[in-house]
Amino acid sequence: MNFHTRKWVKPEDLNSNNTLFGGRLLAWIDEEAALYSIIQLENAHVVTKYMSEINFMSSARQGDIIEIGIEVVKFGTTSIVLRSEVRNKMTHEMILTVSNITMVNLDENGKPKPHHKKEVEYVKNRINLKK
C-alpha cells in the first residue's frame, strides 16, 4: 500500500464528538481515489462508481495527522478498482479500510471508455529523465 497523502485534522474537520467527521474522511478518500485514477488512466474524466463497505476502526482528533493509502486491486475494461487504508500517524492506529472503490474512465460525453491499462504505471517511468 502506497500512502500518498497526509491530512492535518483541523477544527473544521471535527464532528460533535470532537473526533474526525467520517464524511470529511470519506470525501478525502474519494478525492485521493480520483486523483490516483486520473494519473493511472491518463484521463481527467474519471468518476466514482462504487465504494464497498467502510470499516471504521478508530478515529482521529484535532491536531492528528492522518495518511491515506491507495492501491490497485484490478484493472477492468473501463474501470480501475482500488483499495484504501487510512492510518493515524500520531497514534499509529488504523482508522479505516475500504476494500473496493470502483472508478470509471469516461469519454468526453460522459460514457464509459476503455482505458487499455493492465498494470500500475509510475510517473517516473513515463517521464524521460535527462541527467
Score class of each variant (00 low, 15 high):
37 S>Q: 09
35 L>F: 12
11 P>H: 13
68 I>N: 04
104 V>Q: 04
110 G>L: 11
84 S>P: 03
10 K>W: 13
124 K>T: 07
40 Q>H: 10
59 S>K: 07
107 D>T: 01
88 N>Y: 11
78 T>I: 07
25 L>Q: 00
118 K>P: 04
127 I>G: 03
130 K>T: 14
98 V>F: 01
88 N>Q: 08
119 E>Q: 15
63 G>C: 01
55 N>L: 13
8 W>Y: 13
13 D>N: 13
128 N>P: 00
68 I>H: 03
85 E>K: 13
90 M>S: 12
4 H>I: 11
40 Q>V: 03
38 I>H: 09
28 W>C: 01
24 R>Y: 05
9 V>L: 04
98 V>T: 07
88 N>M: 07
73 V>D: 13
121 E>T: 10
25 L>E: 00
27 A>T: 01
125 N>I: 03
50 Y>A: 01
73 V>Y: 09
109 N>E: 14
67 E>C: 02
61 R>L: 09
60 A>F: 02
54 I>L: 13
118 K>N: 15
35 L>P: 00
106 L>T: 00
34 A>W: 05
48 T>F: 08
102 T>A: 04
24 R>S: 12
58 S>L: 09
100 N>Y: 11
11 P>R: 08
55 N>E: 14
53 E>L: 12
129 L>A: 07
10 K>F: 15
85 E>N: 11
69 G>T: 04
131 K>N: 09
10 K>T: 15
39 I>N: 15
15 N>H: 05
30 D>T: 12
67 E>S: 14
1 M>I: 02
80 I>F: 07
29 I>H: 05
62 Q>I: 12
7 K>S: 03
36 Y>I: 09
20 L>M: 01
21 F>L: 06
100 N>A: 12
127 I>V: 15
22 G>H: 01
125 N>E: 15
120 V>Y: 08
58 S>R: 05
22 G>M: 01
113 K>M: 12
126 R>Y: 00
76 G>H: 02
8 W>H: 14
110 G>C: 10
72 V>S: 07
35 L>W: 10
72 V>F: 08
81 V>P: 05
22 G>V: 02
74 K>W: 08
114 P>I: 13
49 K>E: 06
102 T>C: 05
28 W>D: 11
109 N>G: 11
126 R>W: 05
60 A>V: 00
26 L>P: 04
50 Y>E: 08
64 D>H: 12
77 T>C: 06
20 L>C: 02
130 K>G: 00
